[in-house]
Amino acid sequence: MPNSSIHHDASMKHWDDFMGFIDKLSENKRFSSKKSYRFKLAAEELVSNIIRSSESSFGSTQIMPTLQIAAKEVSLLNYDYLEVVFIDDAPRFDPNFDQLESPNHIEAPVALRPIGGLGLFLVKDSVDSISYKYCRGQNTYTIEMELESAS
């Protein structure tokens, strides 16, 4: 697979563009159907969060942040994976993936369950690895999804 990327304003105007790109990545022949779904779920949740943050930021600054998604296959000695990097210049947002656990309210009765709080949990839970860094005014989220052996 050649390296591929997409870059647009981080707004819902480009939702279909971002999701079309994600869909293509999820169709990787070395993904099981389960892994394909999980990757698409994680990517959708992450893009949704980034766009929400960006559009909120635009409301106060009138400057629309952008989102770039870049993907490549990485081949190591015994481990091949798809690396997908999400880079945006919205305000700094650290999801603290290392400390993220199942939301406490998961055990709460239905009537008391807050409506939100599920997206980032699903991002972390759905991928093989995820990391975050903030550098030069950009949030960078890196997802790794192991690839099945090439036949």
């Binding site: 779904y37 698409k40 779920l41 959708e44 949740e45 949704s48 239905v110 009537a111 369950r113 409506i115 939100g116 599920l118 997206g119 699903l122």
Partner: peptide, 20 residues
């Protein structure tokens, strides 16, 4: 074919409005 947390939130919202 696909449902993200946005869909789950909609369903949870509906259930919370329904009788227990």
């Amino acid at each position: 074919t696909f449902m993200s947390s946005a869909g789950l939130r909609a369903l949870l919202f509906a259930k919370q409005k329904m009788d227990q």
